[in-house]
Design a protein around this nucleic acid. Sequence first.
DNA 1: CAAGTTACTTCCCTTTGGAAAGTGAGTAGC
DNA 2: GCTACTCACTTTCCAAAGGGAAGTAACTTG
Lengths: 122, 122
Amino acid sequence: MSKGPAKQSVDCQCEAFRLALEVLGRPWTALILSLLQEGPRRFGEIAESAAGLGDKVLSGRLKDLEARGLLQRSVLPGPPVRVSYELTSKGRAFGEVARAVERWGHELVAPNVPRRSGVRAR
Amino acid sequence: MSKGPAKQSVDCQCEAFRLALEVLGRPWTALILSLLQEGPRRFGEIAESAAGLGDKVLSGRLKDLEARGLLQRSVLPGPPVRVSYELTSKGRAFGEVARAVERWGHELVAPNVPRRSGVRAR
DNA sequence: CAAGTTACTTCCCTTTGGAAAGTGAGTAGC
DNA sequence: GCTACTCACTTTCCAAAGGGAAGTAACTTG
């Protein structure tokens, strides 16, 4: 009774939404932002967490995300030099999106709920 | 801003999340799903709502989304034959994600909030 | 039968992604 | 001093995907 199907609209045309999709609408970006939610990670750590993600693309994504102010790169001293990536406030704000995506993902895996049979043709 | 004690985590490894990113992690998909939230739209309507999206890619995305059970294609009779695309329950469930993305988008456009100056090097 | 409408499909070219190998900085070992 | 080793990239090569324009198919109207 609290809330029925309150249909909030999404402004697909607004600059903010377009910008967000520009970031999300390519492989690996959302995954990188999501796993950095748990805390700072080094280049190698991200690489091994994301199976299938190659060094080149990872490097490119990190550069892009840093340029957009979503994460901050810092070089740690020490014999083998290490680089750590940490989310900024903008990057951390992505957590909300990540959780929404995860919840939606579960619906995706669930079996289809067929409604009415519609006209199907080609 | 104090640190929230309950930092909800996102399981980046789970199948559901991966599947969701497989759908979202490419251009235009999220935009298409978002503007279909408002109701069924025809091919041409989607095309003109999404500036920059070409016919070929739109056609491909719609096929893919239909195959994944996110939307339903139906051919409307009439002299010029028209095709309408309508979201299924899985597709409508994306609305939550879309709204989260839109909210996050506004943070993205906002000016950076520089925290403490960290080690910057290259 | 030519023109118009709608929904695609094809073609061509550029951009991006994926996999693997190479580079450079800095230390440790011989 | 030379080599080996680690880590973080960068480069190279090739396949896949995207962008734009033009072509196709079905069907009606003039």
